[in-house]
Amino acid sequence: MKKILGILITLVAVYVLTAMVGDNFLSAYNQEKLLERTALFGILSIGVAFVIITGGIDLSIGSVVCLTGCGLPWLMVKHEWPPAIAVPMVLVVAALIGLSHGLLITKLNLQPFVVTLCGLLIYRGLTRGFTEDQTQGFGGEFSGLRAVANEKISLTAEFGIPWTWVILVVIAVMAWIFLNKTIYGRYLRALGNNEDAARFSGVNTDRMIILAYVFSSMLAGLGGMLFVMNVGSAQPSNFGNFYELYAIAAAVLGGCSLRGGEGTILGVVIGAAVMRVLYNMINLVTWIPTHIEFAVVGAVILVAVISDELVKRAAARRRVRG
């Protein structure tokens, strides 16, 4: 709880501020949309959180989103694969991508930054290749499948819980259990803190690192499919551009240290929520010019990270004295 206090305060602050100065921020529709967007980006962030906890980084997420987001309609519409085959197939491809990252990083000792940076370029290029750079969309079909990403469970006449949010909660709970209640989660955190010590203690560190990259790519793949199901179509040249950075920013906001070892799933989800509320705020608050949005988002993240660091230092100082 202590670890996510800072980010929780940030969320509440941004939320209350926007509710005060934004138009119709608290409307049921807007709240639904915030849940939906937080879910879509949150899934990516949980994925990258696993990698960040091992002390690595995954820059390929945006391109995996592109590959899977374009790949799913490409398989289903152009090649007429049934969803029951296309969806698992896309997930398998995403898993293989993660596996290859993990193998290159552990067995060849390449740097995660380099491996996934190359991934960022390769998967986008491949997608633009097999789609011949054409926009891929569902063409108004598959509304049953797409309902997963753009329908909701109605609670009142006005408000309902988006299905994407349900998916996020399921994934977050599973991720939390994995990280905190299984021995493998323990190993992951141990090696993120101190890879040598974990290895010296008999942990199969390579296997755990590979697993983290597989999780990251699979969740990016799932996210990519949900994005395209939500939006309806995807253009290979820019679908998912910069999404790796949104995911990393949310994970860092949520308390993941890029030095590894630290991170809570709840914090990461809250981090993703902060980002989405910020973007929403920029659109709903009339006096914020929309073209400075990057500056606003960057500044808020920086302030959150700085205050988090100051809180940590104060705690450490108390500890030394005590």
């Binding site: 529709y29 949309k33 939500n230 253009q235 929403n280």
Partner: peptide
């Protein structure tokens, strides 16, 4: 960014 384009309309 399509997700952003859609979010703009929603907002």
């Amino acid at each position: 960014d399509r997700a952003k384009g859609k979010a703009n309309a929603e907002d």
